[in-house]
Design a protein around this nucleic acid. Structure first.
Lengths: 200, 200
DNA sequence: CTATTATTTCTAACAGCGTTAGCAAAGATA
DNA sequence: TATCTTTGCTAACGCTGTTAGAAATAATAG
């Protein structure tokens, strides 16, 4: 009997509508103004229905955060595999990271930005763990074949990620938007300088 | 007649109590949980009294943000004046920036962190403008006497500040706290590498 | 010292938020 | 058709920032 299947199908349909509406509201008005009641209005259901799909508001945000980390990790892996030399890998990955951030501001702001996540979750949420693993392994490879193999891997990893995040964060805050070529050059200079620093 | 003076004195006393209580609550429970009602309770006045001293909640936060930028700028200038060579200046300023962030987490999180400010205010609030001016002038000096005088000043300034902010931001998020020596070394390596990148 | 005026302060409310208990309606089963 | 299960809703709790308007206090004038 297809009754149970239909119910499940409907349930997932509503779940999808919740996420879809949440995303729409967030992109139109920002994550800050997203509220459960707005989502309820959008999906034309009452508020408690949402709580039968998600434990709380944070769980909805976490859904997108995980999605964002999955997407970013995919981009990084794609670029990484297209390049053999670890140093070039890092430079290209930095560029991919940069592009992701500015082509998916909504994701990035949620992942690293204004609010809750990315603190205790870095090691508990699998999607984030995968992301950090990719970062660590790439940096490790670059260090391994460098002239400073005794370099502390985690320190270098931290510095690399920090620089990336910092570049993106400040550029996001900046209102007086520079031309994209400028921004690209900032990134390239900084990362190449850093990679050289690791290498020698 | 000292009646007007006494009134003003009392008014500023209340204003001080508001800021003092707000700071106490923020340091004890975090900026996120700070509320007007909590402040009102703490100063033993009713809520609307606070609105006769500050236009809204954001104005209270802005007060501390400005204070933070003033303090940070002072630290940076102090270090800057103790060193002639522009390259060394940048390295020392980075260290001072770093120390400020971790010795004044409440300030830093408010200045760059989780929420509202630092977006449109960078050029409108004088205290922030002063800060960015110090950053720009220092970097400009380093570039001027470098072998790449044609370097775009603002790009380099952005990269420098970005790296600093990124290093701090990621380290603040990180739970598995590395020893302080490690962190210091991360900073030093990254900044020295960057300054070398500017210089040659 | 009293009456009037100006100032200060408070009560109470509005509109919004996340969250949940308990009831009504609709669906599935016997 | 009657029973039971699931689903969804109404309404509330306690919190938030903010403000209108009344009450209490303080300063001034007669």
């Amino acid at each position: 009997m297809g009754v149970a299947e239909r119910k499940i199908r409907h349930k997932e349909q509503v779940r999808g509508a919740i996420l879809q509406s949440a995303w729409k509201i967030a992109t139109e008005e920002g994550w800050q103004t997203l509220s459960i009641r707005k989502i309820a209005d959008a999906i034309e259901y009452s508020v408690p229905v949402i709580y039968s799909h998600f434990e709380n508001k944070e769980a909805i945000l976490l859904e997108f955060t995980k999605e964002g980390f999955t997407l970013l990790t995919q981009e990084l892996l794609k670029v990484k595999e297209s390049e053999q030399e670890p140093g070039c890998q890092l430079v290209k990955m930095a560029k991919a990271y940069w592009n992701f951030a500015f082509e998916n501001k909504e994701y990035y702001q949620l992942m690293f930005g204004l609010g809750m996540p990315a603190c205790e979750m870095v090691n508990t949420v699998p999607e984030m763990k995968t992301f950090t693993d990719v970062m660590i392994s790439s940096i490790s490879a670059a260090i391994a074949q460098s002239k400073n193999p005794e370099a502390e891997v985690f320190m270098k990893y931290h510095a690399y990620w920090s620089i990336l995040h910092g570049l993106v964060a400040i550029q996001m805050i900046e209102k007086s938007a520079y031309p994209d070529e400028f921004k690209q050059k900032v990134l390239q200079d900084a990362i190449e300088g850093f990679v050289k620093g690791i290498g020698g």
